[in-house]
């Protein structure tokens, strides 16, 4: 498995980070180096082995259906660049 310069640009767009225009070639090389290294895992025979979701055998903890949180509007809005009347205010998100 390997990535191209286009893949790197696309991943940047999907992650909403600036396209690293001047470092694309370097990044392609570095990422492919990492992928090559991980390719090693393909040497292991996993025929008939269930994928492991977690290394610990715990049951999923569950909560009761009780309202015991929320009502912390000021905390929720504390880091918002802009808020008004209790709402987050963001740039217009519809055409």
């Amino acid at each position: 498995m390997s990535v191209t310069a286009d893949d790197v640009r696309r991943i940047a767009r999907l992650a909403r980070i600036a396209e690293p225009t001047d470092r694309i070639d370097t990044l392609v090389g570095e990422l492919n180096g990492i992928l090559d290294w991980i390719e090693m895992l393909n040497e292991v025979d996993v025929e008939g082995v269930e994928p492991m979701t977690t290394p610990v055998k715990f049951e999923l903890p569950q909560r009761k259906d009780v309202v015991n949180d929320g009502d912390v509007r000021d905390k929720v809005l504390a880091n918002a660049p802009k808020s008004d009347e209790g709402f987050f205010v963001v740039p217009k998100s519809v055409e």
Binding site: D69, G70, D71, V72, R73, V76, L77, E85, G86
Partner: peptide, 9 residues
């Protein structure tokens, strides 16, 4: 009321 039924999660 807006954002009153919101936890930090």
């Amino acid at each position: 009321a807006p954002n009153t039924q919101v936890s930090l999660v």
